[in-house]
Design a protein around this nucleic acid. Sequence first.
RNA 1: GGUGGGUUCGUAUAACGGCUAGUACUCAAGAUUUUCAUUCUUGCAAUAGGAGUUCGAUUCUCCUACCCACUACCA
Length: 489
Amino acid sequence: MGGVRTALYNYLYAKQKGGDFILRIEDTDSNRFVPGAEEYIIESLRWCGICPDEGVDETGRVVDTPSERHPHAPYRQSMRRGIYRSYAEQLVASGNAYYAFDTPEALDQERAAAEAQGRTFIYNHLTRGRLRNSLTLPPEEVARLLEERSDWTIRFRMPEGRIVEMDDLIRGHIEVDSSTLDDKVLWKRADELPTYHLANIVDDHLMEITEVIRGEEWLPSLPLHYLLYEAFGWEESRPRFAHLPLLLKPVGNGKLSKRDGDKLGFPVFPLRWTSPTGEVSRGYREDGYFPEAFVNLLAMLGWNPGTEQELFSLKELVEAFSLDKVGKSGSKFNPDKAKWFNREYLRMKSDTELTTLFLPILKEKGLEPAPSYVEGVVGLIKERATFVQDFWTIASYLFVAPTEFVPKDVDKFYKPDIYAMALEALEASDADTLEAYVRDHGMPMGKVMNCLRLALSGAASGLGISDILHFIGKAEGLRRLRYLKEKLG
RNA sequence: GGUGGGUUCGUAUAACGGCUAGUACUCAAGAUUUUCAUUCUUGCAAUAGGAGUUCGAUUCUCCUACCCACUACCA
């Protein structure tokens, strides 16, 4: 959800400004490669109606070779390997970065040692002087290690005592003392790949990105990113940044996570996701949400139009969206409100459209009623439903006769005298005259109707008797009434 | 621990420094209905705490508290 919302805001912003929305796959961590994840992302965006202008072709694949429409290809960072190293070396040459030969084990030891003293180890101006890197080692040894070893990295040489001044489109002016920051790894020899920080800055520059709208978790690395733009001499074309507040779990505190959905009964993923380990997470699509509703509810989580309008199509969102109406604090997701959105969208849909969606569900139940009949049913019941699949639980008895009867309702309404009246009334009238007949003959309306409803639908609550009769017909009604007696004695 | 960010009804949010702090969801009550649902009406419910600036602070400043993120050869 969080990822889709971020993509959505980017899309809305780009489209409103007449810009392009580019999809780039940031897969620089080879250890975290997840098969199918890329396809999943693209399919999710497509379901939401968010179509990248660049990066993905008509068949839904990430583009690897440049063309007129996709001038910045490849769009997968793992396919751009060759690009990054020279940029990293450029920073070494200009003194903004250096080679580091510390092994992960050595760094772990440093951290443990610092922790033992109640301190935190930071690789920065305080410590880099006593660690194994091209700043401390003699040039010959550096050259030798570069040649012999394949596990070195290039680290950014974070300046000491610089006050980095930044501007965020949502949060305003922010200042950070660079002394508190660390020498981030920019490039990993072992993978021949950059880390996010380097790849992101280089690619944003190369792809002519003008605005970076991303999650708040990136705010702490914004100073580094500013300094990288500076080190490359790209300050003039540095994109503008907007850090979005996080999506929080509905109860308690903390970031929304996959687990919350399982626990509280709502999806956290746009589409159903099966992890490589076989773990299945439900999706909004499979749960019956309309993509319009999903997009709409996501848009309203952290942003507001400044008016009281709540329902927006994607097109309307493009018009109305504005970064300065995005809030600063995290939003707790409210599943009830999510359902409300879907209910609203369901009501806006035509009976014909809803019928098209309901027919397959009926077919699964082995039923193939006439579409015109189904459309009538849909029109009658749609305002009682939140999802299309609710139609079945609401009106199954308009398609098949009930065989089970709610015991509590049976106790209350299945009485010999009431039943006799119900039978008499139905035999002597039809859907349109039933109510008048019951009234004119001085029968207790509530009891007789509920007895009938019990026979017709299996419970004493639900659709109007007259409505039910219109659909199933008087003959079927009588048959069900007799079945009730047959079954219950 | 350090750094940064944040804080208006339960939730999402509104309110150029200026009416009784508005709206939606949820919840409750009433009306409507042959029942249920719908619909309609009404109601419950908030500026984290403390200083300061000001004629006046939800809004600006500072302090405190609490929450969140980051603090990886992850993004």
